[in-house]
Design a protein around this nucleic acid. Structure first.
Lengths: 230, 230
DNA sequence: TCAAAAGTGTTGTTTATACACCCATGT
DNA sequence: ACATGGGTGTATAAACAACACTTTTGA
C-alpha cells in the first residue's frame, strides 16, 4: 500500500548558472479525527529549515503532469488513492533563496483517517497536526494552510467533498461532526439533517449502527462519491 | 502608456539536456464592449502554432513573482494597470512538445475597454474576440478560456469585480448590460437595481447622463473599487 | 405627439433559521 | 429506571422571482 520512497530526496540540487525556476508540487492533506480537523505535516530532513515542519511536497518530475505529481505525493505519504484532490494555488514567493526562483503548485486533499497508513521513516517523518495547534512551519507554509482551509470551508458549503473524509457507511452524527470540525462551529441537528437529505447528498441504507447504550443510528451513504457541486 | 516590447521574444530557446520545466504565465484578458464579452488574443509569430491565435503570455523571468509577471504581461498588451487580476489555474498539459515539460500559470484580468490601448506591431498582433465567435486556438487554450469564463461568471455573482469592467461613472443600464453580457442571459431590471443597491455595491452620484432622446439616467459609482466578496 | 430608455412596488415562493421533546437501547 | 445519543416538526424571517406601467427627454 505505502511506497517507501524517500520524499524530496532529489530536491534542491546545487545549481549553477542558467537557472530555470524550480517547480515543486505540494499537497495539503486534511483529515478529521476525534472531531478535530488535522493536517499532515512532514519534518524536513535537510536544509533549508532542516528539522522544521512543512507541507509535504517534492519536485515535479519530467513529463509528469501536475495532477499526477500531486496524486503520487499523496500515495507516498498516505497510501490512499482516489480521494478528493484539487489544485489550490500556485505560489512563487515561498522560497526566496532559490536561485532562479521557485514555483510551488499547491494541491489539497481530503482523506478518511482510517484508510491512511503513514510511512515509517527516520528522516522526513510525518505526523497529523490539529489546525488549532500548529508548530511553526518552514517556508511561508502558514499562508498556504490558511488558504487551503478557507477553500475547504467554502467547498463544504456547496459541494459533496465530505465524502472523501468519511468511510463509505456512516451515521448522520458522524457526518455532522465532520462539518462542525471543519467549520469550527456547531450546527443545528434538525436543520443539518433536513438539508443533507433535501439536497440528496446522502441516502439512508438498510443498516443500523448498534453501538453503545442508546438507540441505534441509521446508516447513510453518499449518493455520489465523485466531486459534485450541489 | 504602452510599452512596445515584443512579447515572448525570449520564449522557447532550443534547449538541450538537463531540462527543467518551462514556466510560463498567461493572462486571459476580458472586457465588455457593445454588450458583448470579449477576450484579447494574440497571433503567434513563431512556431509552434505560428499564425494561430492564443492567450497572451510569456516566460516567467528570473526573480519575478507570478503576480508581477501577470501584471507586466497585462501592461504590455493593454497599457492598463490596477485592474482586477487574479490567478486562475496552473496547467501542465498545454504544450506536450516542450522538452522537460511545461507549466503554465494562467491569470485572468478584467479591463474597461476604453482605457485599453492595444500595442501596434506587425508580428504578435492582438485583437479582441467575442466569446461567441472564437477562432481555433493554439495549445489547449479553449479549455483555459472555458475555465476562465466559468470562474468569471461565478465571481460576478458574489463579488464586486464588475468595477474593473466599467469606467468610474456609469448608469444602471450600463452595469446591467455588463452583467447580462457575461452571464449570457437577461435579468429583470427592477430586481437587478434592487439587489445592486441593497448590497451596497454601487452608489448614486449627483450627476445625470443627459444622452439621447429619453429621460436622463442617474449616474452611479462603485462603493469600493477593490475586490470584495459581498 | 411620438419614440426611446429611465425609473418604480407588490405579491407569492422558496430557503434558511430558531427552537424542545420523545425514542430505542445497554447497563 | 436511568443515562446516552438518535430522531423528529413547526413557525418565523429573509431572500429571490415574477410581473407592467409611468416619467422624462429630444426629435
Amino acid at each position: 500500500m505505502v511506497r517507501r520512497m524517500s520524499p524530496e530526496s532529489r530536491e534542491r540540487p546545487q545549481r549553477t548558472a542558467p537557472a530555470e525556476p524550480l517547480v515543486a508540487v505540494f499537497v495539503v492533506i486534511f483529515t478529521v479525527v476525534d472531531d478535530d480537523l488535522k493536517v499532515l505535516l512532514i519534518r524536513r530532513g535537510i536544509d533549508p529549515f532542516k528539522g522544521q515542519w512543512a507541507i509535504p511536497g517534492g519536485r515535479l518530475r519530467q513529463q509528469e503532469t501536475l495532477d499526477k505529481a500531486a496524486a503520487r505525493k499523496l500515495v507516498e505519504e498516505t497510501g490512499v488513492q482516489d480521494v478528493y484532490l484539487e489544485q489550490l494555488y500556485t505560489f512563487s514567493e515561498l522560497d526566496p533563496q532559490a536561485r532562479g526562483g521557485a514555483v510551488a503548485i499547491a494541491y489539497f486533499a481530503l482523506v478518511d483517517y482510517d484508510s491512511v497508513r503513514l510511512p515509517e521513516r527516520e528522516e522526513w517523518s510525518t505526523c497529523w497536526f490539529s489546525l488549532k495547534g500548529l508548530p511553526s512551519l518552514a517556508f511561508a507554509n502558514e499562508s498556504v494552510l490558511d488558504y487551503a482551509l478557507s477553500r475547504l470551508r467554502n467547498k463544504m458549503e456547496y459541494t459533496n467533498v465530505a465524502y472523501s473524509l468519511l468511510p463509505r457507511y456512516f451515521t448522520m452524527s458522524q457526518l455532522q461532526k465532520v462539518y462542525e470540525s471543519i467549520l469550527d462551529k456547531g450546527v443545528d441537528k434538525r436543520n443539518f439533517r433536513k438539508r443533507m437529505l433535501a439536497l440528496g447528498l446522502v441516502q439512508p441504507t438498510e443498516r443500523k449502527a448498534a453501538t453503545g447504550a442508546h438507540r441505534p443510528a441509521q446508516i447513510y451513504t453518499f449518493s455520489s462519491r465523485t466531486p459534485t457541486v450541489i
